[in-house]
Amino acid sequence: MLITIDDYFDLDKIIDSGQTFRACKIDDNLYRFISMENVLYISKDSSDKSCYNVSCSSDEWENIWYNYFDLDRNYKSIKPEEEFTKTCYEYSKGIRILKQEPFEMLISFIISQRKSIPAIRTSIEEICKRFGKPYHTSHNEDIYLFPTPKQLAKDNSNELSQCKLGYRLPYILDAVTTISNNPHFLSDGYNMSDEELLEHLMSIKGVGIKVANCIALFAYNRLSLAPIDTWINKIINSKYNGISPFDNYGDNAGIIQQYMFYYAITHKNKI
């Protein structure tokens, strides 16, 4: 099916922006995204730079993927103020904040602590292979879906310990136990304020303020929240005299943060 996206949309940047760890580029012009039990293959159409070929039906695109890619939001309307922010914006535009499944984001960002993006991907893929449901895709690939809390709860730490989790293992076990004992724990977050959601998430062992902000941004679409990691902290200190610029951007703060983060990890010598 052919679809049109008129706003900024760059698949390579989205995949490499540090917000998703299972999306991948299959070849020069084919990308795969996974959302729960839905798998999307998407490629650019040669006839028009705003047109894309997608592997799903029109109903699935409208009901799942349109929302997943945050396509009801106009990213072109964002107007950066400071010079460095403008630089990050011009370089990183095309990134969109994906609306991802909360349990996957919870586990993924617990794992992300003090790990490189490739290492995070390796650990997550290992978890999926060991605990996730096998899935044969429309493009004849055999993959594994991200495991549910129930699937992870059935296994012991000896199995999880082979997924290169290190000191994060007890945090993962606590998260699985918490969600298994309270199946509504994550869905309750949709009805909370930003502050309440962050406190709620931080009740899980190993979830600090940065990880909580990441989950809130990438699972709950709380775009006024801007996670502060090592790279963003360096930017604040070197480019903004130690004063966070994100208050200037209101509901776009999380988008600006992603633009800065992507710029930083691709221009490490300039930060």
Rank of each mutant, 00 (worst) to 15 (best):
Y190W: 14
G242S: 06
P102S: 01
M105R: 04
L186M: 10
K93H: 08
E83G: 02
F146D: 04
D12V: 11
F261N: 02
W65N: 06
K25W: 06
P102F: 01
E81D: 14
Y249P: 03
N140L: 06
K270A: 14
D6C: 01
M105W: 00
N29V: 06
G242P: 12
T266N: 15
Y262Q: 01
E37I: 07
K268H: 07
D155V: 12
P149N: 03
N237I: 07
L40G: 03
H139W: 06
S187T: 15
S35L: 12
V211R: 04
I265H: 00
H267S: 04
I236M: 03
Q113S: 15
K93R: 15
M192L: 13
Y52N: 06
I143C: 01
Y91D: 15
V207W: 00
T122F: 05
K76S: 15
E101C: 02
L71D: 10
C51T: 13
I97K: 03
I3E: 10
G166P: 07
Y8D: 11
N182V: 03
S244T: 15
A226I: 05
I124Q: 06
E195I: 00
L30Y: 03
Y171Q: 12
H139C: 10
F261D: 02
M1Y: 11
T177V: 08
T122P: 01
I95S: 08
N191D: 14
I209Y: 09
Y262W: 10
D7H: 05
F261M: 01
Q113W: 04
K268I: 08
E199D: 14
P147T: 08
E90T: 04
F84W: 03
Y167K: 08
H200Q: 02
F9C: 10
N182Y: 07
E125I: 09
D251S: 14
L2R: 15
S50P: 02
A253F: 02
E60L: 07
P183Q: 05
I172P: 13
N213M: 08
N181Y: 06
I97Y: 05
L217H: 07
N248R: 13
M202L: 00
R32N: 11
P102K: 01
N269V: 03
G189M: 04
K210F: 08
P102Q: 11
L223T: 12
F21T: 11
F21R: 06
I228G: 00
R22Y: 10
K239S: 01
Q19P: 07
I265Y: 01
L11Y: 09
T137K: 04
N248Q: 12
S116F: 02
L198C: 04
D59T: 13
I111A: 11
V54N: 03
G242Q: 13
Y52R: 12
R73P: 07
D28H: 09
E141C: 04
M1W: 08
I15Q: 12
G206T: 03
I15R: 05
S58H: 12
N181C: 09
S187L: 09
L169N: 08
E62H: 12
E101D: 15
W65F: 07
C88N: 04
D28T: 09
K99H: 14
L223D: 08
A216L: 03
E141F: 13
H136C: 08
Y220R: 06
Y8V: 08
P80V: 11
I215F: 00
L201S: 07
Y144I: 07
K99R: 14
